[in-house]
Amino acid sequence: MTTLSVLIPVYNAAPYLAEMLDSVLQQSTPADQIVIVNDGSTDQSLELLTTYQRREERIVLIDQPNGGVSQARNRALASCEGEFVALMDSDDVCIPQRFETQLNVLRNQPADICGTWLQNFGATDRLNKYPTRDDQIKWNYFFFGRTIPNPSAMFRRTSIGDRRYIDGLAFGEDYAFFLSCLISNPEIRLTNIPKPLLRYRIHPTQATRRLKGQNISNLRAIQERLLPCAAGMSLQELLPLHFKTWKSQQALSVDELDLYLPLMAFWSHWLSQQAQAPCPAADHWLTLLRRHRAAGREALNLIYGHAQPYLPRWKIAMDQVLARFH
């Protein structure tokens, strides 16, 4: 039985492949299968991959015309036979205990998708920390916090169902994939291990740097396509307000709040009930209240009206008292 498959899309990554593959092959708990899709590389990537495949029988090498990273990941996922699937980017490096540590979490804790912290290297040297709690991660998928870092993710194959990466997305395809897993299976259990088990390479040619300008437009398109909403609500109309107050951290006008708050209330109920993640609700509503302290009593009353199911009475009373001094 194949326990762990590793999924690796490759496009013009020849300078980094040997270090990446050696880190995968030298894990303390070895993978059973390593599925690599060469996505029409025009450098020496295919030759290097072929050399590794000849001496390592666990490697399944698929060569295809360039179709983009989502198509490459989906092609690889279709060939993964493991009960668990680890994601890996072609320019990163695994810490030797990465697979062992993540498999231990997925087998022994209530978790279906498990990421890790990242240690940047190359152009920058920084530790990237990510939340560990399931409920906080789920709220962050809606409200622009840190979620599951795709290059470090490992998941239980059965937990994702028939979810696949959205073809044609040049940026944010990883966010879309995990968000779609959450929306289709709200009770899915998410976590990040608070250790840097992946070294994340920073260099000028990586997609996250080249395509950074597409971030906002792609995020909005993804949320419009995937996020739930009540009948009669228009995400096309309401998402600009969501981005304004949560991404840009700006206050909304009274008229804008009147439009937006039913959507936030709907998401709060969905996350609290469907996704079984009620705890972060109070913090999010309090953040919205504090962001609008200078907006006037009418705006605050609108927010209080929607926030009350999620705030303890003492928090509402204290916030109302504090608001009098602003």
Rank of each mutant, 00 (worst) to 15 (best):
A18V: 14
L127H: 11
L4K: 02
E56D: 12
D174G: 13
F266K: 11
V24A: 14
Y260T: 02
L261A: 10
Q64R: 15
Q320P: 03
Q71A: 07
V85N: 11
E47A: 12
I216H: 14
S23Q: 03
P151K: 01
D39V: 02
P240I: 01
A317I: 08
I62E: 11
N104L: 13
D174I: 01
Q320A: 13
L211C: 13
P228I: 10
Q214G: 05
L235C: 13
V35E: 01
D89P: 10
N301H: 06
K138W: 12
V10P: 06
P9M: 01
A275E: 04
P278R: 07
A307N: 02
A14D: 12
A72W: 01
F99T: 03
A72L: 06
P131D: 03
S159I: 08
Y16W: 14
W285M: 10
N104I: 01
Y200D: 13
G168T: 02
R75G: 01
V85A: 07
M20S: 13
M20W: 05
S23A: 04
L289D: 05
A170T: 05
S248D: 15
D135R: 09
C181W: 05
R163V: 14
E56T: 14
A282Q: 14
A72E: 05
A78Y: 09
Q64E: 15
L7S: 09
V35G: 02
T29A: 12
I148T: 08
R201W: 05
I59K: 05
S28W: 04
N301D: 15
D63I: 00
S70V: 03
P96R: 04
K244I: 02
N38E: 05
W117M: 07
P280I: 09
A76H: 01
P278E: 04
C80Y: 03
P149A: 04
D92H: 10
D135H: 12
S234E: 13
D255V: 13
R297L: 15
G40C: 10
R133E: 13
I34W: 00
T132G: 09
T205I: 08
Q64C: 11
A86T: 06
R290Q: 09
R157S: 07
Q64L: 12
P9A: 02
K247F: 14
Q27G: 03
A251E: 03
S159F: 01
I137Y: 00
G122Q: 00
W267R: 04
P186R: 12
D319G: 03
Y141L: 14
D162N: 12
T116N: 12
N120F: 07
M20K: 11
R146Q: 13
Q109P: 08
N301V: 06
E298W: 04
N301L: 15
Q308S: 14
Q320K: 15
A111S: 15
P228V: 09
A123Y: 09
A251V: 09
D92T: 11
R156Q: 07
L106H: 12
